[in-house]
Design a protein around this nucleic acid. Sequence first.
DNA 1: ATATAAATGTTATAGCATTACATGGCGAAC
DNA 2: GTTCGCCATGTAATGCTATAACATTTATAT
Lengths: 131, 131
Amino acid sequence: MTLHTDLTRNQSLVLGALERAEGPISAYAILDELRTDGLRAPLQVYRALDKLLDMGLAHRLETLNAFILCAHPHEHTSEIIAFAICETCRQVWEFSDDTVRERLIAWTQAQDFRPSRTTMEIKGQCRKCAA
Amino acid sequence: MTLHTDLTRNQSLVLGALERAEGPISAYAILDELRTDGLRAPLQVYRALDKLLDMGLAHRLETLNAFILCAHPHEHTSEIIAFAICETCRQVWEFSDDTVRERLIAWTQAQDFRPSRTTMEIKGQCRKCAA
DNA sequence: ATATAAATGTTATAGCATTACATGGCGAAC
DNA sequence: GTTCGCCATGTAATGCTATAACATTTATAT
């Protein structure tokens, strides 16, 4: 459990729930976790999540409609992150690849497309679960 | 409008709606379009969409919760497709890049991860809308 | 102190997707 | 040609995900 002095109460609560989850967790599951702490409405969770995403402390997994703690919170270099998501054990691997980033940027530049956010998610089975 | 003799009635109707849409469209929007043809329940649309996705005739855009006609229905080579989605005009570009595919496959092989489906979506602004 | 921005609380609602169960059509095997 | 099994369909109900709208409180800066 890290210290996050710059976070508000709700943001800290949500971050704590993400840390305890140790994997992807939905906004509503976070809410259920935090009802004992006084949270009552989905919006309280979604608002905190929005900030955590902005700060790079959490990620949204589009194919799961779920959220996960950022594995490398201090590497803001790439901004293009890929996730491998095991459909069996739900474990998630976060990684980035410079070549992939270059190729995608090359495509967008060739098209004069200005990217704002990129989603890359590979679903499948991890080594353990495929064995 | 292409002929799709191997499709069932509902599948043909949904494919037609996708063709007319000329862009991403939600399952519920498809349903609204097809009420005049007798469709009444979301499940009728979702079941047809599932088949069209299997056949490679349509794609699901995870970041939009929407569906779109496949732009290259006969190129089943890559299976790793990227989408650029303009957040202003909602137009979608579908493309694939062999190098990106190779790098992602390299990562999964190094991790003994067996991919089943890969999602790549770049949101941003297209040339026209960014100007 | 006061203005301003940011965060919070609350209710209601909108939008997306699936479960469960019953029915119908159609081809293969016998 | 009937029976079996498979696939598609129809329908109702429900569950999950996310946001709109509005009122209030708290933090920050000057």
